[in-house]
Simulated scan of single mutants.
Amino acid sequence: MAVGRRKRRKLGQHFLVDDRIADRIVDESGVGEGDRVVEVGPGRGVLTSRLIGKGAFVRAVELDRTLHSELKEKLDKPGVCEIEWGNALKFDFDSIKAPFDIVSNLPYSVSVALIKMFFDHIDKIKSMTLMVQSEVAKRLTAKAGDSAYGSLSVYTAYHCKTEWLFTVPPTAFRPRPKVESAVIGLKHLEKEPPVGAPDKEAFFEFVMTSFVHRRKTIKNNLRDLWPDQGSFKKSLLSAGVGETQRPQEISLDRFAALFKEWLSYRT
C-alpha cells in the first residue's frame, strides 16, 4: 500500500465518488448564491466544486498536504474559494464572516470532536449538512426512548434541531468503509436553547454522569449526588422523573428540571 494511502486512512478519509450522492448533499444543504460555507476535509473537491457552482464562497480546510496542494491549484480563487491547510479542530471561526453554513463529509476519526466544536460556535452557524458514520448519525438524531439515545443526543438537542436526511452505502466511497454512512441536517435553534440551564458546562457533566451506566436506573447513577435519599426522591418527583427510569428514557427538558433540583439541593 502506498504511503499516501496509508496516511489518508489514518486520517479517517474515505473519498466520496458517487456524483448523485454529492449532488444530493449540496441540494439538501440549501446553499445558494452569496452564501458562505465552511467545508472540513474537502479531499478531492467533490463537494467543494458543487458548492462553488451554487454561487457560494467556500472556505475549505484540508489536513493532508498533498490533497491541499492539489485542491489549492485546482479551485483556490480570491473571493470564490479559499483552500486552507491545517487541523480543522483548530479552525478560527472568527476568520470568516458570520453567519455561514457548514457542509462536509467529516473524517470518521474526529467527527464527534468536530461537531462538538461546531456547537461551541453555534451562534455563528446557520446550518450544518454533514456526512458521518451511520452509528454517529443515530446518536446525534436520537430522541428519548431510542436505543441510540445518550449524552451526545442530549448535547445536540440543546443546540440544534436535527434531521436524518438519507443513508449512504459503502459503495459510494473509495476506499470503501466497513460501515454505512448517513447525511444529517442540523439547524441552529432560532430562539435560546429549549431549556434553561444556569451553568451549561455543569449541566452537561450532570447528563454524562446520568449515562455512566446505561443499563442502570437514573436513581442508581445519580445517588452519590444526593446523599440524602429522601431529598433525592422528592427531587425526582418534582422533576417528573421516575425512580426506575433509565437515562435513555429521559428527555432534555426532564434532565434540565432534575439538574435544577440538584442545584437547589446543593445550596
Rank of each mutant, 00 (worst) to 15 (best):
P99T: 04
W85N: 10
F91G: 09
G55W: 03
G55K: 03
L89Y: 02
K54S: 06
D64C: 11
K77Q: 14
I83M: 02
F93E: 00
L114D: 02
A56V: 03
I125Q: 04
L63Y: 13
V103K: 02
V80H: 06
E62M: 03
I102K: 00
S95A: 15
V103I: 07
V103Y: 01
W85C: 10
I52D: 12
P78L: 09
L51K: 09
I96K: 09
K124F: 00
I83V: 15
S109E: 12
K90F: 12
V80C: 11
R59V: 15
E73K: 09
E84S: 13
L67I: 08
K126E: 10
E73V: 03
H68K: 05
K54N: 06
A88E: 07
M117R: 15
K90R: 15
K72M: 09
P107H: 13
S109T: 14
F93W: 05
V61D: 07
M117V: 11
K74Q: 13
V80M: 14
I52F: 11
V112Q: 05
N87S: 10
L67S: 12
Y108L: 06
I83N: 02
K74R: 15
G53C: 05
I83S: 01
L63Q: 10
T66C: 06
I115S: 02
V61L: 09
F119Y: 08
V103C: 04
H121D: 00
D92T: 07
H121R: 06
F91E: 11
E70T: 13
G86N: 09
K124V: 01
R65F: 10
H121N: 11
N105V: 06
E82K: 15
K90E: 15
F119I: 01
F93Q: 02
P99S: 03
L71E: 04
I115G: 01
I115Q: 02
H68F: 08
Y108V: 04
L75D: 01
A88D: 06
M117Q: 14
K116S: 11
S69V: 10
L114R: 03
E84W: 14
P78W: 12
K124C: 02
K124N: 01
L67Q: 12
D94I: 09
S95R: 12
S104Y: 07
K116H: 07
E73P: 01
D64R: 10
I96E: 12
V110K: 13
A88P: 05
G86Y: 07
L106D: 08
G53M: 05
S109W: 08
W85M: 11
D120Q: 15
Y108F: 13
